[in-house]
């Protein structure tokens, strides 16, 4: 069982109580099965109520859950014959970005994902999923390769942002992100981008110029993390919870604003509760998106992407 989050506590307490009663029933003569059934009903209702009405900050917590599935886990579930391809051919290989070729339901595709670690050791190796320029350049190299071989591209976004380090600046973090935005605009194959966890700043967008831009139900996407925004705008990072609400960063909000094309549902309580089932939800979505753009010629795909981003912005004339 994964660690409970604050907003889940009533559910956890009730579940513990049911377990306790069940254990008691099995070791004593008293029959409490009626009561247990009652409590189970209550648990079901409570789950629906709590998980069905998650606040933005609850979703941020779920998106950051240490057990939340990462890119490689989904890749493993969703694709066959995955072969990872490394390096940007310029400087190095960034472990915060994974990429390669695989089959999706018998169609060759290119997959690119931002990769967090599941424990401290892996997180150090993966730089907590915060790419350096070579990560973005590797992603672009693989996208160009996909274009050459007419493969659709699937990008999994999961980052707190591009790494704000000294070496990243020296190697042109800005240019690496900017180049991806422009070059992705011109890709003549379908591009599907899915935010699977966190999606902050240009560091997320750098693999997000897509024909379909999707989000998992409990992921978030914004110009900056709620903590960052709170510290800049309100000079207090501890107001992140309020900022998460004010900034409209959740999938339902972004769908409403017309920023994303669709929300991919999550299993009740969050993706980390059932990787297999969650992967099925993703599979259906990817299948639908690929179907939608199948047979569309390169120029139409570029035009489609142009129209999609051209219309974004709120202003008056």
């Amino acid at each position: 069982m994964s660690k409970p989050l604050a907003f889940e506590e009533p559910i956890i307490k009730l579940r513990d109580k049911i377990n306790e009663l069940e254990e008691f029933t099995s070791t004593s003569d008293v029959d409490l099965s009626g009561e247990i059934e009652n409590l189970k009903m209550r648990l079901k209702n409570l789950e629906e109520e709590i998980y069905g009405n998650m606040e933005p900050w609850d979703r941020v917590q779920v998106a950051r859950h240490p057990q939340r599935p990462t890119s490689l886990e989904y890749i493993n579930e969703l694709f066959e014959d995955f072969i990872e391809l490394h390096g940007d051919r310029v400087f190095g290989d960034d472990a915060a970005v994974v990429g390669g070729i695989a089959l999706f339901e018998n169609t060759p595709v290119t997959i690119i994902g931002q990769q967090r670690g599941r424990d401290t050791k892996e997180n150090v190796k993966r730089n907590f999923g915060m790419p350096h320029p070579e990560g973005y350049r590797k992603a672009l190299r693989l996208m160009k390769q996909a274009e050459k071989f007419q493969r659709p591209i699937i990008c999994l976004i999961d980052t707190k942002g591009a790494y704000p380090g000294k070496a990243a600046e020296e190697r042109g973090q800005s240019e690496a992100i900017a180049r991806n935005l422009v070059e992705m605009a011109g890709l003549k194959v379908p591009v599907i981008s899915i935010v699977i966890g966190e999606g902050a700043s240009g560091g997320a967008l750098a693999i997000g110029i897509a024909n379909h831009f999707l989000m998992l139900e409990n992921s978030w996407c914004s110009v900056i993390s709620p903590e960052g925004a709170a510290s800049i705008l309100w000079r207090d990072a501890s107001l992140a919870k309020q900022m998460a609400e004010a900034m409209k960063i959740t999938a339902p909000h972004l769908k409403e604003m017309g920023i994303i094309d669709d929300i991919i549902p999550e299993v009740m309580g969050g993706a980390h509760r059932d990787l297999k089932k969650q992967s099925e939800f993703l599979r259906q979505s990817i299948r639908q998106s690929l179907e939608r753009f199948k047979g569309m010629d390169g120029n139409s795909l570029v035009e489609d992407r142009y129209m999609k981003y051209r219309g974004l912005g709120v202003f008056s004339e």
Partner: peptide, 12 residues
């Protein structure tokens, strides 16, 4: 918020 991020995409 997100709208400002998307201006990077739009200009690109």
């Amino acid at each position: 918020g997100i709208l400002s991020l998307m201006q990077m995409a739009k200009t690109s």
